[in-house]
Design a protein around this nucleic acid. Sequence first.
DNA 1: CGGAATCCTAACCGATACTG
DNA 2: CAGTATCGGTTAGGATTCCG
Lengths: 142, 142
Amino acid sequence: MTATAAQRRAQAKVEYDAFLAVCPSRQLLDRVADKWVTLVLCALGGGSDAGYGEPRAMRYSELARQLAGVSQKMLTQTLRTLERDGLITRTVTPTVPVTVTYELTELGASLRQAVATLKIWAQTHMDDVLAHRAAYDEVPGR
Amino acid sequence: MTATAAQRRAQAKVEYDAFLAVCPSRQLLDRVADKWVTLVLCALGGGSDAGYGEPRAMRYSELARQLAGVSQKMLTQTLRTLERDGLITRTVTPTVPVTVTYELTELGASLRQAVATLKIWAQTHMDDVLAHRAAYDEVPGR
DNA sequence: CGGAATCCTAACCGATACTG
DNA sequence: CAGTATCGGTTAGGATTCCG
């Protein structure tokens, strides 16, 4: 007996998943998708979400203060993955107590620029989206 | 007794969370973050992840076939939120059995363009990222 | 100060079954 | 064909505690 329809579908799914796993866009999106990734990028980029300054190095505790909502677990985790991906650098200065600073790499800065274009879109069109959303929610039967 | 340090931190967190909740960039990112949102946008945009065609209407089952990994629950859910946000339209044709087609709106098409810039970045820099990642993983003690 | 390790809950999501 | 409804497993992520 040859493959059933269900088996063929399962196979297609596996292949598609494998494709997505190595798709560069997908990998990037998975990074950017993370709430704290973009916020850290922003903070190190020298601006809060509005307004831009010069990129600058920040200490762990500075970041924790600026991103008020983050747990230290998520902050550490986020910083690790960003370091691993070469988007930021981690510098340990052996003072007492120890001082750790984080800074955008060139690669990280360029990613921040790319993400900024999404921000532009958001500022231009997000009120449209919200209007549609409100209109949609007006209709009772759904 | 006035507010403790812990209380002040908690307060800051609440305010920051509230800020993020209404931040347009954040709201957009939360949408784009969704794995299937970008893939549906892409499919309706007429291209798989590589290559572009003309935007075109697609039926529910066509989408399900092209996005091989998606469960019908996630597909429906994704389509609903996109429709709610005015990014796609849903058209029901009362044939027997019923035919439903989805199509990008102008707004949706423009978002797809914006996301495409991220794709450019990915194609340009993602191998750098992967190289950093591999180098980082080489070092045993972490 | 800058973490690492542990526990625990909320949500997400897939699989399955049923419907107009 | 194009969904809706329900159940259950997985897991992301917060709170807490401890360490160099």
